[in-house]
Nucleic acid binder design. Sequence first.
DNA 1: TACTTTTGTAAGTGATTACTCACTATAATG
DNA 2: CATTATAGTGAGTAATCACTTACAAAAGTA
Lengths: 173, 173
Amino acid sequence: MTEKQQNILNAALKLFATEGVTSTSTSKIAKSAGVSEGLIFRHFTNKEGLLQAILENGREKSDEYFNSVMKVKDPKERLLMALHLPFVIPSDEYDFWRLIYTLKWQRGPMEHEGMDLFRNSLRQAFEELNYANPTAEAQLIEAIIDGVTTEVLLKDIYPKPLLDCILEKYKLK
Amino acid sequence: MTEKQQNILNAALKLFATEGVTSTSTSKIAKSAGVSEGLIFRHFTNKEGLLQAILENGREKSDEYFNSVMKVKDPKERLLMALHLPFVIPSDEYDFWRLIYTLKWQRGPMEHEGMDLFRNSLRQAFEELNYANPTAEAQLIEAIIDGVTTEVLLKDIYPKPLLDCILEKYKLK
DNA sequence: TACTTTTGTAAGTGATTACTCACTATAATG
DNA sequence: CATTATAGTGAGTAATCACTTACAAAAGTA
């Protein structure tokens, strides 16, 4: 991976996240990355290929988050870990997650293998805790993580009081 | 409002919601609405004007939802009403709400007057119920409505078990 | 009926789009 | 050193973009 190749990826991620994929032209990316427009196509075939490269690049990060939750054995601890997720995203990853959340509405939610394992591990935690409807509970906690992450990415909030409210609902405090 | 004018609004809403605003060309809208492309500009000045017309058109709907919650006096009943919101959206409004949720990431969340009143009425309900941090609680319930609405709009879920889980967390059952 | 306003169209406009091509500079390899 | 593969450029391409303009049909109004 050359330096210019990295510049392209960085510039494209920032532009895709802030202005949207279709509103970002390849010429704008090239200008922002300080390379010729042709180089984008040499390295990434086309605009879609560039987007996919960004997505693959970030998938490793997201898998780490999911794994850090799944490896926790104690069910209560695992839920605690899951509910912390929105608050442990480092701000230099915000652009990537904004991109993910934007793409959801045009291309559907990301549904790779790791995501399924994550969902199952949550459901299993609720089963072990004898919740009445573990599947629905897993769906809800996913929705909460989703909604809270949206708040974190779009507004600037005070994490602590919000997290306290969440944990109280699940009696994890 | 002519029939063709309505056709344009309907076609544009559907295309904007499913493919995104910037990926939808005015010629595509015209073709889908069965009118000449020029008519779009006669009636709505430009593409942005068309989007604004759609948004104003839908604001009445959203205000009705918020008002139906705010007019409830009893705080528990009001929270109950608010948490029902994601499940009372009729499916013929899905396109509009998908559009709203998409735009959030490019143009920021919609922040009109009615939204502020809604937020305050939720905070006040938590105050009356003597919650420790009403502001954070209002933020959380907003995030939950947001996340659950996302699930409703993007996946097909069973509303009842999910709603049950939510109400149990707030001891509203 | 005569006149004005509104609604609608078809054929344009220049600018921008994603992408290609011919070519050069650099680096790796035998 | 000679050869070959890779990295990089800049000037193209046709297609599409949002939008305009000139003009006709329709509808309202006196």
